[in-house]
């Protein structure tokens, strides 16, 4: 095969007929609206959470401040979990500029992905820390009303549960979450090396 023939063959590939401009723009708008709606949803969730915490603080009327802090921490933990598992992180981060040349673009994309990885880990750690702390604080008020031995057992079981979460569950969830993004980073780096 003569290399000059390659161009002839290449040009024989018919392009799929150009989609109607209006249809294309409609798709573009739909995409834009989808992103905006997701962003609004995230903000609405944040506001709803704040309201929820305030309402609980207003209504449960606990005797100790630790109970209120405990509840707030647990709800915060739920938010951390939603952010880190729902792919919201990607939405909150600025996307790489696509008009950069491929080398710069890939480099930027790798940096963003690495940041995402670090942030994902941090948020997951915060989730477990906030959940554990929240539980322990929340229990203080009610444990004080129990007999000593009952209180010790309640705290013992809770502490064991938190320890199990931190030592066993956390690394497992983290490695599962990170496997995909690490794979993407590896692929991006492989292609980035092809550019040099």
């Amino acid at each position: 095969m003569d290399t000059n023939n390659l161009k002839d063959l290449w040009n024989k590939q018919d392009a799929i007929p150009q989609p109607d401009l209006n249809e294309l723009l409609k798709s573009a708008l739909k995409l834009k609206n989808k992103n905006r709606n997701q962003m609004l949803l995230v903000m609405a969730m944040g506001v709803a959470t704040m309201l929820f915490i305030l309402t609980i603080g207003y209504f449960i009327e606990p005797e100790l401040i630790t109970t209120r802090i405990g509840v707030a921490l647990i709800i915060l933990a739920i938010i951390f979990f939603l952010v880190s598992s729902g792919g919201l992180l990607r939405l909150l981060m600025k996307d790489a500029d696509q008009s950069l040349n491929a080398a710069d673009y890939l480099q930027l994309l790798i940096t963003i992905k690495e940041k995402q990885l670090v942030l994902g880990t941090r948020i997951m750690n915060l989730y477990f820390a906030a959940l554990g702390m929240g539980l322990l604080l929340y229990m203080i008020e009610y444990t004080l009303k129990m007999p000593l031995i009952g209180g010790l057992i309640a705290y013992g079981i809770t502490a064991a549960w938190i320890l199990f979460n931190w030592v066993y569950l956390r690394p497992r969830i983290l490695s599962k979450q990170q496997a995909k993004i690490s794979e993407v980073i590896k692929n991006l780096e492989k292609v980035n090396n092809q550019l040099s």
């Binding site: 989609p19 249809e23 696509q98 673009y105 993407v184 991006l188 292609v191």
Partner: peptide, 22 residues
Amino acid sequence: NHCLRQLEKSKKHPKEEFPPQI
């Protein structure tokens, strides 16, 4: 860059939500 970005997606072609006409 859009081509390279396909690395982020699965190996298989993910179907985007474009109108059927397209």
